Amino acid sequence: MKHFFIITNTSKDPELAETYRIKDYLEEHGAEVTLAEQVMVSSDDEKKPRFTSDVPGDAEICVVLGGDGTMLQAAANVIDKNIPIIGVNLGRIGYLAEVDIDDARNAMDRLLANDFEIEERMMLKGVLLQGEDAGKVNHALNDIVIARCSSIQVLNFNIFVNNMPLTQYQADGIILSSPTGSTGYNMSAGGPIVDPSAQILLLTPICPHTINARTIVLSEHDKVTVEIGEGRGGADQIVEATLDGSNRKIMKSGDRIDICASDKVTKIVKLSSESFLNTLRKKLV
């Protein structure tokens, strides 16, 4: 590896001390380093970074300093560049960011020596069928969540698989998760934890209003269509679909979104041979 592209969550490294420590170390060892430019934007009453610089055409790897949220943003940034990403964890529980900051130099040595493996992670593709974004393809590494915008109300969802009716949910929302995203919102909503190398879709209702509603596990070849049903008395329901916690799309009763496995993948650098189950055991204690 000779050209490194570094993305940093400045809320976790506000003075960029860790960022420049890694940058200087790589440059001392003959590598070229480009830092991602970013601006802070307001979202849901808090400010989040948005990365504005393009990934250099000859960049070979993206190093991400932050937590899993920053990794998700980085995955979206490099989706068309076909380069791997590696996370240096500056957050708390990190399932995607595998390198601890105290071990960053050793990790950089291995990257410089091309001593690593690459794991390809399945992504989701979401396509709205109505509105100004109709037909536009959106990608997510973790999940696509469809939930209420503000008011507390039970939502009605009609679920189709491969254009055939499957079930109806009365719930606070719906999560379509990839195996990578199974340890995120899906897990919090009572969904199963899945090995990230699996090739399946998880459909999990959020706070369903029936006692028999459970996660439905589907094939990577299936297409799930979520239709927003009518509210009480035929009233319009207004919801929002979010991809990996951002990229919000407003939907209303009658609107549909198609979700399936994407033809894009996220390439995650693996330095450890430790199994997913062993890593999971450590994270959950």
Rank of each mutant, 00 (worst) to 15 (best):
F4A: 08
P14C: 03
E15Y: 12
E15K: 15
E18G: 15
Y20R: 12
K23F: 06
Y25T: 06
L26M: 05
L26A: 06
E28A: 11
A31I: 05
E32S: 07
V33N: 05
L35E: 07
V39S: 15
M40F: 13
M40P: 03
S42H: 05
K47C: 02
K47D: 15
F51V: 04
S53P: 01
D58S: 14
I61Q: 06
C62L: 04
V64F: 07
N82P: 10
I83V: 06
P84G: 01
G87P: 14
G87M: 09
V88G: 15
N89R: 06
N89S: 11
R92N: 14
I93V: 14
L96I: 14
A97F: 04
D100W: 00
I101Q: 15
D102G: 04
D103S: 11
N106P: 02
N106S: 15
N106K: 12
M108C: 07
L112D: 09
L112H: 12
E119H: 09
E120W: 12
R121C: 12
M122S: 12
G126A: 15
L128S: 12
D133V: 02
A134M: 08
G135K: 14
G135I: 00
K136A: 02
V137A: 14
H139V: 08
A140Y: 04
A140G: 12
A140S: 15
I146N: 01
R148E: 00
C149W: 05
I152A: 11
V154H: 04
N156G: 04
I159R: 08
F160Q: 14
V161D: 13
V161F: 09
N163G: 10
M164G: 06
T167F: 04
G173S: 07
I174Y: 13
S178E: 03
P179I: 04
P179T: 02
G184T: 12
Y185D: 01
N186L: 10
S188Q: 07
G191F: 11
V194Y: 04
V194W: 07
L201M: 10
L203I: 09
I206R: 02
P208Q: 06
T210V: 03
I211V: 13
N212S: 15
V217W: 09
V217G: 12
E220K: 11
H221F: 07
H221G: 14
D222M: 02
K223Y: 00
V224N: 02
T225W: 11
G229F: 02
G229C: 04
G229R: 05
G231C: 01
R232A: 00
R232S: 01
D236Q: 00
A241G: 10
R248Q: 13
K249D: 00
I250S: 05
I257K: 12
I259Q: 03
I259T: 07
C260S: 15
D263H: 07
V265H: 13
V265S: 13
V269K: 10
L271C: 03
E274K: 09
S275E: 00
F276M: 08
F276H: 12
L280Y: 14
L284M: 13
L284T: 07
V285W: 06
